[in-house]
């Protein structure tokens, strides 16, 4: 489970314009339900297809806590275990529904040195065939290399 630090970029190696390794999540009912219950969100729209459709949604859909969790994972899978997420600011769009893979992409938009940290601002996007599920900004810090 523990990963070597060698796989993660040092703050000095990160530059504006760098792309994060893309990540594709195969969204299934299990993925949606697992996230909803782990986040203690029992809203039927996140586990009951008939209920969700009755409310006008195309299918049961991922809850926002899970979306934020996957955005966080997407960023720290790249930045490594010393990374600290300071902000996840997203605009919510198309629902994440079963059968539609969610594709995460990200780019370093800004980088600045603070006291003993490097502050990195990322432009992130998670999209499926319906359109943009979540777009926005993640601010993450790394210890100065």
């Amino acid at each position: 489970m523990t990963r070597g630090e060698a796989n993660f970029p040092r703050s000095t190696e990160i530059a504006v314009g760098d792309e994060l390794p893309p990540f594709e999540l195969a969204v299934t009912p299990t993925v949606i339900v697992a996230g909803a219950i782990a986040s203690r969100d029992f809203m039927p729209a996140h586990h009951d297809r008939e209920f969700a459709r009755g409310q006008g949604a195309p299918d049961m859909f991922m809850n926002i806590l899970t979306t934020n969790g996957y955005v966080s994972r997407f960023v720290t899978d790249w930045a490594g275990p010393e990374a600290m997420i300071r902000k996840i600011a997203i605009r919510l769009g198309a629902p994440a529904i079963p059968g539609q893979p969610l594709r995460f992409s990200g780019r370093v938009a800004e980088k600045r040195e603070a006291q003993d940290e490097c502050v990195i601002e990322l432009a992130v996007r998670a999209a499926n065939e319906l359109g943009d599920h979540a777009t926005g900004t993640v601010v993450v810090t790394l210890p100065r290399a």
Binding site: M1, A34, I37, A38, T66, G69, S72, R73, D77, P81
Partner: peptide, 9 residues
């Protein structure tokens, strides 16, 4: 486990 997030921290 639900999100398969293996960040060891």
């Amino acid at each position: 486990d639900a999100l398969d997030d293996r960040n060891p921290v």
